[in-house]
């Protein structure tokens, strides 16, 4: 049902790696390490500033794919994959966008399931790619029925 979105790309959206959000995020995953939070430790580190945890891009706005509307409930998060060229640094701007990589369907014990693979990209203000984030979302038959598709 999402096959025709394959290859679709969103617009780019500017995000800032905000200090307060990094602190709150690090605390929420039980990892309030000084490299994320303590300004002096950040300044004296090889990064010259604090950095963000690897799963932090979760909070970024990476744009919208026109017409791609996922149900708000009943989705299963199957896989998640990050690739980094360097850590995200507090205070910097990151430009993010989304690409639909793949969609396919399989019949399993729970009926027909859809697998949607979406990749998000983040580059710095020099246009250098800093990270990619790939997520596979599973759309179950129950959800498809509820959506009447």
């Amino acid at each position: 049902m999402y096959e025709h979105f394959k290859g679709s790309v969103s617009e780019k959206v500017k995000n800032t790696v905000e200090r307060g959000l990094v602190k709150r995020f690090a605390e929420s995953i039980g990892d309030p390490h000084p490299i994320f939070i303590d300004e002096e430790v950040g300044r004296n580190s090889r990064y010259g500033n604090n950095i963000a945890p690897p799963t932090f891009p979760r909070i970024f706005d990476a744009g919208k794919i026109d017409g791609l509307n996922l149900p708000s409930k009943g989705l299963i998060h199957g896989e998640q994959k990050y690739h980094y060229t360097r850590p995200l640094v507090v205070g910097e701007d990151i430009y993010c966008w989304t690409e639909v990589q793949d969609y396919y369907e399989k019949t399993g014990s729970n009926g027909l399931m859809g697998f949607l693979s979406v990749k998000r990209y983040g580059e710095d203000s020099d246009g250098k790619l800093i990270f990619t984030e790939e997520a596979v979302t599973i759309i179950t038959e129950a959800v498809r029925k509820a959506m009447k598709v």
Partner: peptide
């Protein structure tokens, strides 16, 4: 740094 981090739930 963590260059690659891949998880299956």
């Amino acid at each position: 740094l963590i260059e690659d981090y891949q998880i299956r739930f």
